[in-house]
Computed example of a mutant assay.
Amino acid sequence: MVDLIVIGAGPAGLTAALYASRAGASVIVLDGGAPGGKLNLTAEIENYPGVVQKGPELAYSMYEQCLSFGAKYEYGEVTHIVDKGDHKVVYTGDKEFEGKFVFIATGTKERRMGIPGEEEMSGRGVSYCAVCDGPFFKNKIVCVVGGGNSAIEESIYLSDIVKEVHVIVRRDVLRADQYLIDKLKEKDNVKMHYLRKPASIEITDNKVSGLVVSDSNTGELLTISTDGIFPFIGLDPISGFVKDLDIVNERGYIEVDENQETKIKGLFAGGDVTEKNLRQVVTATNDGAIAGQYIASLLK
């Protein structure tokens, strides 16, 4: 039995563990991936106050700092949680952990395009992480799907690696911040395709060879020759393992109060998996700090 089980080792989870363990709580952090969450997929962090560095570097700093106050890290994918009233039981594939409190910070996962060829070529020409896979497409042609901040950030990053970037936008405008749009305009190897949406993926010799896009108004099809496709069309919360607890809304996001506590006493959540207006590193650490400090106060 520990005081706090943190599910998810992104900025929210690591901050909650840091604040709680620093206040004397015994803490276990569970995650099925590398510590840092989506920080590991971000080339540059430019809007975290006082910090300008590569995402993976910030992730490792947060992880080291978190463990320095006694928190323990365990690798494991959580399958479900059982509420026992005065404590919770968290189950992974082959283990179970008991804690007085639980903080869920599982974040989000990239939304799929849902078109023919996507699943078949996932990891073989279709990638959801430009930082991870961009170097495989050096001097090649790629397509980026999306018009928000993530899509434009990744387009800028890829433009320095690949021969040509085609940006597919289903609307007639970009939704990204103007700062990013201005940076994108400086890239002469980026081609914009407005009012287009992905329809299917062309495959030749078991490799991605083209992206078929349709006109958003007329439905007319156009094939763009490409070696790789990077979809950034939105995110979905990783909350399936708690849907039976009735703490998520219709979109799958967990609802919490001002202390980051759900309707189940002792069960907290924070970061991108919660219902909120802004999902950023700085808001995730805010959630973790609030929850970690509050949980520590309940233990006294």
Rank of each mutant, 00 (worst) to 15 (best):
F103M: 04
N149R: 03
R124P: 01
D86T: 14
C129I: 04
D83K: 01
G125K: 10
R111C: 10
R112L: 15
S127C: 02
F97M: 13
Y128T: 09
K88C: 01
E77W: 14
I156P: 03
A71I: 06
F103W: 05
V89N: 10
T79C: 09
Y91K: 10
K84T: 05
A105L: 02
V162G: 02
F97N: 00
I141T: 15
K88V: 07
K109W: 11
F101T: 12
Y73T: 14
N139E: 15
G134Y: 01
L67S: 06
F137T: 10
E110P: 06
G147M: 09
G117C: 03
K95I: 03
F103G: 01
Y75W: 15
D83E: 00
R124H: 13
V78C: 03
R111D: 12
K109L: 14
A130W: 08
E77Y: 15
K100G: 05
L67F: 01
S155F: 01
R124G: 09
T79H: 08
D133F: 06
Y73C: 08
D83N: 14
S68C: 04
I81F: 07
G125F: 05
L67W: 10
V162E: 03
V131W: 08
Y91V: 12
I152Y: 01
G114D: 07
D160M: 11
V102I: 11
V131Q: 08
K100A: 13
R112D: 10
K84Q: 09
S122R: 13
T108R: 10
D133W: 01
T79R: 15
V162Y: 02
Y73N: 11
K109C: 06
I81N: 01
K163G: 14
E96Q: 15
D94V: 11
G125N: 09
E98C: 07
I156M: 00
T92K: 05
M113L: 15
Y128K: 07
P116I: 05
A71K: 00
Y75K: 12
K88D: 07
G148T: 02
E77Q: 14
G76S: 05
K163C: 08
G85D: 03
V145T: 09
K100Q: 11
S127K: 12
G146T: 03
C143I: 05
G148D: 03
P135Y: 02
E154Q: 12
V142I: 12
E77C: 14
V89C: 04
T92N: 13
D83P: 02
G93M: 14
S68F: 00
R124M: 15
